[in-house]
């Protein structure tokens, strides 16, 4: 198992390398360079200073040298300088990364917390009124785009009712490190996380429901009944375990999708996370930030896939890892 994971991580290196080349090429192909952004901020700079700075930053070197330097810096944790924010990208990201991870984790947790019981009820008591209600809910949430739903939630619970804060990740006045701080942070998190989760549950509910419906007519369930096992145990030992398999495998991919999902959530709730930053940076052509973010989400995708495979092989004895 350990060998498998190590080998998978080794496999990730060439994948990351390819990704980095793509990202780098893309950034180079974009109109303008790191300095163009800066130029926009200080329009008085003359052509000579510009040339000098170009030389100094190595922007006149051959492309492959620039690439190697870029990768080297990347490996040292130096993601370059954001010309918009005028600070190292690393510093810019560190706080936001934690925020995004927190939000993603909350969305994920809430999603599963809501989806699993609903999926269970729906699948086990198929065609009951509860099932019909749940299926109805999942249709509605399937048809609703995330950003519209998040906006409505923000409007209703944030502005109209005023139950939740409408932006930020924490109020400025609370002192860092106190219990209040964490409660406050969670308070800010709840509405965006809930919005994300309520929309995100659809897939899992539907999946779990149909898995259970498929599994409960399988032969081995008949066998279990023929052994005289009570219905509750038949569900917990036989039907659910088998129905959770694909859901568990899903988890890894779910993580991948969350990064994308956070773009909407964070922008709408003005939540200082990576997604919000990503959108801003694209609009302001802050390329060093964009490339860093793309690299991070690429890495997250790879880790998510790895996680999926590990989870699946851990829960399904039929999948053997040599």
């Amino acid at each position: 198992m350990l060998k498998f994971i190590l080998r998978r991580i080794m496999m990730m290196i060439p994948q990351l390398l390819i990704l980095s080349i793509l990202v780098f090429a893309l950034a180079k192909a974009m109109p303008g360079d790191a300095l163009t952004g800066q130029l926009a901020q200080s329009p008085k700079m003359d052509a000579n200073t510009l040339m000098e700075m170009r030389e100094k930053l190595g922007l006149n070197d051959p492309v492959h040298i620039q690439y190697v330097r870029w990768v080297k810096n990347l490996l040292h944790g130096d993601l370059g300088l954001s010309y918009i924010h005028q600070q190292p990208v690393t510093d810019l990201l560190s706080g936001r990364l934690a925020n995004t991870l927190l939000l993603s984790a909350c969305v994920l947790l809430l999603t599963y917390l809501i989806a699993i019981p609903l999926g269970l009820v729906s699948g086990r008591w198929q065609d009951s009124w509860a099932d019909k209600l749940i299926v109805g809910y999942s249709y509605v949430s399937f048809a609703t785009p995330l950003f519209i739903f998040a906006l409505v939630m923000l409007f209703v619970f944030g502005f109209k009712l005023g139950w939740f804060p409408t932006g930020g990740s924490v109020d400025i006045q609370v002192e860092k490190g106190t219990l209040d701080y964490y409660i406050n942070k969670f308070y800010h998190l709840l509405l965006p996380a809930l919005s994300g989760a309520l929309i995100g549950t659809v897939g899992i509910i539907q999946y779990l429901r149909s898995e259970i419906i498929d599994t409960k007519v399988k032969d081995f369930v008949k066998t279990a009944r023929a052994k005289g096992i009570p219905e509750s145990k038949i569900y917990s030992h036989h039907i659910l375990r088998n129905s959770f398999l694909p859901i568990a495998a899903f988890l890894g991919y779910e993580i991948t999708g969350l990064i994308g999902g956070s773009i909407f959530l964070e922008s709408i709730y003005s939540y200082p996370g990576l997604g919000q930053l990503f959108l801003q940076s694209i609009m302001q052509r802050d390329y060093s930030v964009v490339t860093a973010l793309v690299m991070i989400s690429g890495l997250a995708t790879l880790i998510g896939t790895l996680l999926s495979d590990i989870i699946l092989s851990a829960v399904d004895p039929r999948i053997r890892i040599e």
Binding site: F220, K222, T223, A226, H237, H238, L245, V315, P317, R318
Partner: peptide, 16 residues
């Protein structure tokens, strides 16, 4: 009463 089924592959829980 015990029961024996036709297809022994599907009659057993793959995860147990």
């Amino acid at each position: 009463i015990g029961m024996i089924f036709q297809d022994p592959l599907t009659a057993l829980n793959p995860l147990m």
